[in-house]
Design a binder for these strands. Structure first.
Length: 943
RNA sequence: GGGCGGUUAGCUCAGUUGGUUAGAGCGCCUGCCUUACAAGCAGGAAGUCCGGGGUUCGAGUCCCUGACCGCCCACCA
């Protein structure tokens, strides 16, 4: 029996199979477009829509999948599957990032375990060792992704160190250099003494730190060059930097120090003579109003030093130990030196005071070591011209942010941007394509490795040892994954590229650039999103449009939309972290509840702007949802099989589209079809706006609340397989049942791809019309198919049934007891209730309802604005019933009072729209009628 | 220091341009093994929409203000 499903849904039993199937069948691979013969239009989806293109934010190659990835991937997968099912060519490109520092650190740790250092190995061997690691383990995170069912094109998987992406990095660097947008110079940068590399401003995280403000007395020198006996006191949080002091700065208007203008000082401990300089940057009310100036170890001091032509004295080595400039402190770690220096100052009575001082201390984002601002020779991107374009692209609306507020965040950052330090003193990464000539000391920057200095021809050239910031290469991804710069065989970068290769890349680029959407988390908004926009707009602008026309800014952007999601936290809203031990491993939770349930949890909680407090209790609920659907399927298949036995079959050709129903179909059939259309409309609309939560909840409500709770229960009445059955009616009911279910599976499939794939194949009994539900069409509502009469009728019927059930419970009827019922209603509804007698009987456990003009005395009653029902044997708890009635009456009185107050307000009648006033009037009328009836009930109870 | 977000049921969150009695899931209470499903069914209780002021015929929704929570940017020694 193909329809013989186990009683409970076991995700583990089916998920691995489908995950592997999707990959092996290459269901989500998008063929490279045919190279253009001449200029012609872009690649189009079958129905003429543009392709949907999306890049996976590449996880670190060393990474393990965490909940943030899973949220990100779930959202992208839902959108990609949805777009694909809407008929668009949907291309989702996966890949990994070489993650310079992270990966180097990890391999270094391995070396340490073997008792080796990378220096012992040497650069070449070390890099080879990293590649080795990557070949073995680098695919782990993407394998995890496969397990989650991400519908990516695995044929296009990239790695940021791949040859073709490295070519792009090199081209970008050389081009920027040629455009004089890359320069090399000695500036203060953030230096991590542990990683022993420069890091960018963004890679520094500040922590509040309870430190001290030391006040140090610097002797003022007299005209004779000896101590005059007077001191000037400076305040500092970092006394050790005094070894590199080159001046003390005061505010020119500061009266306290006016007499010291032009004087010199002696730096204690090192006995260097330094000037007093005047600078308006100094704030008079902080500390003592006198600042020691250490240009080599503080960005502000560096700027001040530049203004005053002061020298810079670097007092530390790469690992933040004092160097020879440190005199007797040489060799000491910076914090050890601090202790020694403070002690020595104290001894010499040069410490005027120590105050507690809370300030922010920068730490390396990667290893949390305290960052050392340090003067060093680095490479920078002159960022303003790129930023200007990136600002324009967003301001002119070529890139849209969701939620919108991130546009402000983005612009604010972009408008206050600083030059980007792109050099890293690492071995793992894209090595900067610059060669230093030992003969003429000039640099050669080249696309191809040069053999000789471009300036003097000397063969004694050495390649720059620095590599590029990882984000430099990932920032280029939108252009580089689609073939840039090898787009034409003529361009300089492409000397080695065949005309054919170039044409293929060119076709790819034409088809898929700009990408449609970027889905990411706000924490890499500046690191990555902003850089992609800058680099994408800059480099794409030079690439002609398919028809040969110049590319506008609108067509240069790397993506047209950015959707930014929140962070996944634990159930207590704590940030997940290894140290807290509250990290939820997605793979573990997936094994526990099934991938679909976890995906659905994330989707249903992904409302914009709020972090997700991931609570497994909720996932448990969605596992139940999956099980519910599984069992609905079992029920349906059971009936399909039963029907087949007496020759009733459902025409497969009737499936796969949106069902519609004849006007003479039973109420529940017309209703569920109408609900399906309404649901499809809502889901499409929600996904359009990235409201995953709305979309998920809408489907949940439809599937469980409407389809299972009501429709399936009612349809049982129609599935009559006896000899006497009206076979046409049974077939019609069965057909609608299967049609709606099949369509609902398609509706759900972007959210729960595994379950729906399994059941969809079962619906077709192993002979599906496509290789996957993912390749079918997503339900689209037809307005005309939303039968509002059916929706209203069903709503009333549901109210009647719920009323009877509630009343039964209230009067303490046995759950199983079948009792008689009286219904009194307006003539408007008598027909509806008459037609629906069988439904009422089944769902409310009553005998054939008796429609009466008024409920007989002595029956237990329930009042609705549209009807009254009465049940026999009122063994009522009088006190409880009185309480309930009073409460109900009180509530109604409130409504009445509130509405009447509004109606009696002349302003309301004058200004409120007609339908609001009408509605209010109707409401009062209904509420009053109901209140009177309840009053009557209360009266008869109190007798 | 500058900017942003949040505060709605016990918990986690929805609540479209202001409009008729503020919703969902989980949890809780009560009763049911009703042959698709106990990962289920049915019924129910539960809210000063953070406080204060204002605009409006009408405010959870708009404005001002205060409190609390959280985030981002800057980094005055």
């Amino acid at each position: 029996m193909p329809h013989d499903l186990p009683k409970a849904y076991d995700p583990a039993a089916i998920e691995d199979h489908w995950a592997a199937y999707w990959v092996s069948e290459k269901l989500f691979s998008v063929a490279r477009p045919e190279p253009r013969v001449q200029s012609q239009s872009q690649v189009q989806s079958p129905d003429g829509q543009s392709p949907f293109t999306i890049l996976l934010p590449p996880p670190n190659v060393t990474g393990r999948l965490h909940m943030g990835h899973m949220l990100n991937q779930t959202e992208m997968d839902i959108l990609t599957r949805w777009q694909r099912m809407r008929g668009r060519t949907a291309l989702w490109v996966p890949g990994t990032d070489h993650a310079g520092i992270a990966t180097q650190m990890m391999v270094e740790r391995q070396l340490t375990a073997d008792g080796k250092t990378r220096q012992q190995l040497g650069r070449e061997a070390f890099v080879e060792r990293v590649w080795e690691w990557r070949r073995h383990y680098g695919g782990a995170i993407l394998d995890q992704m496969k397990r989650l069912g991400a519908s990516v094109d695995w044929d296009r998987e990239y790695f940021t160190m791949d040859e073709r992406l490295s070519v792009a990095v090199r081209e970008a660097f050389v081009k920027l250099y040629e455009q004089e947008l890359i320069y090399r110079g000695a500036y203060i940068v953030n230096w991590c003494p542990r990683c022993q590399t420069a890091i960018s401003d963004l890679e520094v995280v500040y922590d509040e730190h309870k430190g001290h403000l030391w006040e140090i007395k610097y002797p003022v020198l007299g005209a004779d060059g000896n101590d005059s006996g007077e001191f000037i006191t400076v305040a500092t949080t970092r006394p050790e930097t005094m070894l590199g002091d080159v001046a003390v700065a005061i505010h020119p208007e500061d009266e306290r120090y006016r007499h010291l203008h032009g004087k010199s000082l002696r730096v204690p401990l090192v006995n260097r003579t330094i000037p007093i300089v005047l600078d308006e940057w100094v704030s008079r009310d902080f500390g003592t109003g006198a600042v020691k100036v250490t240009p080599a170890h503080d960005p502000n001091d560096f700027a001040l030093g530049q203004r005053h032509g002061l020298p810079s004295i670097n007092i530390m080595d790469d690992s933040a130990h004092m160097n020879a400039e440190g005199g007797k402190y040489a060799g000491l770690d910076r914090f050890a030196a601090r202790g020694e220096i403070v002690r020595d100052l104290e001894e010499r009575k040069l410490l005027a005071g120590v105050k507690d001082h809370v300030h922010n201390v920068g730490h390396c984002d990667r290893c949390k070591t305290v960052v050392e601002p340090r003067l060093s020779l680095q490479w920078f991107v002159r960022i303003q011209p790129l930023a200007d374009k990136a600002i324009a692209a967003v301001k002119e609306g070529h890139i849209r942010f969701t939620p919108e507020m991130y546009q402000k965040t983005y612009l604010n950052w972009m408008e206050n941007i600083h030059d980007w330090c792109i050099s890293r003193q690492l071995w793992w990464g894209h090595r900067i394509p610059a060669w230093h000539c030992t003969a003429c000391r000039k640099m050669t920057i080249a696309r191809e490795d040069p053999k000789a200095c471009a300036h003097c021809g000397s063969a004694n050239i050495l390649q720059e040892t620095d590599v590029l910031d990882t984000w430099f290469s990932s920032g280029l991804l939108p252009v580089s994954v689609f073939g840039w710069p090898k787009l034409t065989a003529e361009s300089r970068a492409d000397a080695a590229v065949s005309r054919a290769d170039a044409a293929v890349s060119r076709a790819d680029f034409d088809a898929f650039y700009p990408t449609s959407l970027l889905v990411t988390s706000f924490d890499i908004l500046f690191f990555w999103v902003a850089r992609m926009i800058m680099l994408g707009c800059w480099f794409a602008a030079d690439i002609k449009m398919p028809d040969g026309s110049p590319r506008s800014l609108a067509e240069s952007v790397p993506f047209r939309e950015v959707y930014i999601h929140a962070l996944v936290r634990d159930a207590n809203r704590e940030k997940m972290s290894k140290t807290k031990g509250n990290v939820i491993d997605p793979i573990e939770i997936v094994q526990q509840y099934g991938t679909d349930a976890v995906r659905f949890t994330l989707a249903s909680m992904a409302s914009p702007g709020t972090d997700i407090a991931f609570n497994p209790a909720r996932t448990e609920g969605y596992r139940a949802f999956a099980n519910k659907i599984w069992n609905a399927a079992r029920f349906i298949f059971m009936n399909v099989d039963r029907a087949a036995e007496i020759g009733i079959t459902v025409d497969r050709a009737a499936l796969g589209a949106m069902p519609t129903d004849a006007d003479d179909a039973p109420l529940e059939a017309r209703w569920i079809v109408a609900e399906l259309h309404a649901t499809a409309a809502k889901v499409n609309q929600s996904l359009e706006a990235y409201r995953f939560d709305e979309a998920a909840n809408t489907i949940y409500q439809f599937f469980w609340g409407s389809f299972c709770d009501w429709y399936l229960e009612i349809v049982k009445l129609r599935l009559d397989f006896t000899e006497a059955a009206d076979k046409a009616a049974t077939r019609a009911a069965l057909t609608t049942l299967v049609q709606v279910f099949e369509a609902a599976l398609r509706l759900l499939s972007p959210f729960m791809p595994f379950l729906t794939e399994e059941l969809w194949h079962a619906v077709y009994d192993g002979k599906p019309p496509a290789k996957s539900i993912a390749l079918t069409r997503f339900p689209v509502a037809e307005k005309a198919a939303i039968d509002y009469d059916a929706i209203n009728g069903m709503e009333l019927l549901q109210r009647l049934i719920v009323a009877i059930r509630a009343l039964r419970k209230e009067i303490g009827l046995e759950e199983k007891a079948v009792v008689s019922v009286e219904i009194a209603t307006d003539v408007t509804y008598q027909g509806l209730f008459k037609e629906s007698e069988a439904i009422v009987q089944k769902l409310a456990r009553v005998t054939q309802p008796e429609q009466v003009g008024g409920i007989s005395a002595g029956l237990a009653k329930y009042h609705d604005v549209a009807f009254e029902v009465g049940l026999p044997k009122p063994q009522i708890d009088v006190a409880a019933e009185r309480t309930r009635l009073k409460k109900e009456i009180e509530k109604l009185d409130k409504v009445i009072a509130n509405s009447e107050r509004q109606l009696s307000n002349p302003g309301f009648l004058a200004k409120a729209p007609e339908h609001i006033a009408q509605g209010l009037k109707k409401q009062i009328e209904e509420a009053k009628g109901l209140r009177d009836k309840l009053d009557g009930d209360l009266g008869s109870l109190s007798e």
